[in-house]
């Protein structure tokens, strides 16, 4: 059984078919890239996967369970965590507290236990502290733990978003243009980190990028979107040589790499 199964997913915004009849699967342990020009519907698919939007048609299954009707905050319980194309951090909270929010859904101690500082509070908080430090260290951000998130440089903010997502212990990590705004060496480092994340935390990764070359190195499989539909999917070589993909990328829209993110 696939980890993620997307079946005939569609969403229409006032007649605009932002996502139209999209189906794909992701197996456990895979790193899959989702590419396509700006406006192709990639971010909208993430919003559908995390139940921020309700699909007009179609259904999503995580480990065989339908996600239909689940509130957005329950999606982490089902094993999905994400980052955002326009970074969304808790800017006035410390870096380590940002990560700790990722543990929230596993939190067991009650408000009363917190207020009276009973043993469950201490035990859990100590565990969170250790685990959060561990995650930050893996991303090379251990020395930034107590800074307010807003003071981080851009690249570190992107990484912190991934840390927070990892903290929730996802089976599938959804990354929306994580390399956006990074230079070549930062991007290379990020790709290495993503591979590390996959091995260390045993998560599958679905990675949005509109730069095709970038994902070639890291993804085992690619899904190409255009105008809300799947244009092609398969291993990177196959996709690269697919004439329709070449046309979409080199067609009237010009070079997609020239577009901002």
């Amino acid at each position: 059984m696939a980890l993620l199964e997307v079946k005939n997913l569609s969403i229409f915004f006032q007649g605009l078919k932002a996502v139209h009849d999209v189906s794909f699967e992701i197996a456990e342990g895979e790193i899959v890239g989702m590419i396509g020009p700006n406006g192709a519907g990639k971010t909208t698919i993430f919003n559908l996967l995390t139940n921020v939007y309700e699909p007009t048609e179609g259904e999503i299954f995580v480990e065989g369970k339908s996600t239909l009707g689940q509130p957005a905050y329950k999606m982490v319980d089902m094993g999905l965590a994400r980052t955002f194309q326009n970074i969304r951090l808790f800017k006035d909270m410390s870096v380590i507290d940002n990560v700790k929010v990722g543990f929230h859904h596993k939190g067991r101690y009650s408000i009363a236990e917190a207020v009276f500082r009973l043993p469950p509070y201490w035990r859990e908080e100590q565990l969170y502290e250790e685990r959060a430090e561990e995650i930050l260290d893996i991303f090379g951000m251990g020395d930034m733990a107590n800074l307010p998130a807003r003071n981080l440089p851009y690249g570190a903010q992107r990484k912190l978003e991934i840390c927070r997502a990892i903290a929730s212990g996802p089976k599938l990590l959804l990354l929306d243009e994580p390399a956006c705004g990074m230079n070549a060496s930062e991007t290379q480092e990020l790709m290495d980190t993503i591979r590390l994340v996959k091995d260390r935390f045993h998560t599958s990764v679905l990675l949005i990028e509109h730069d095709m070359n970038l994902v070639m190195g890291i993804c085992e499989r690619l899904i190409v979107l255009n105008y809300g539909q799947v244009l092609a999917q398969g291993d990177p070589e196959e996709v690269r040589n697919n004439p329709e993909v070449i046309r979409a990328y080199l067609g009237s829209e010009g070079d997609p790499n020239a577009l901002g993110c």
Partner: peptide
């Protein structure tokens, strides 16, 4: 605090 800072990010963090 996370709700104050960014309710969309808070809800997708669980």
């Amino acid at each position: 605090l996370s709700v104050r800072e960014d309710s969309i990010a808070a809800s997708s963090s669980g």
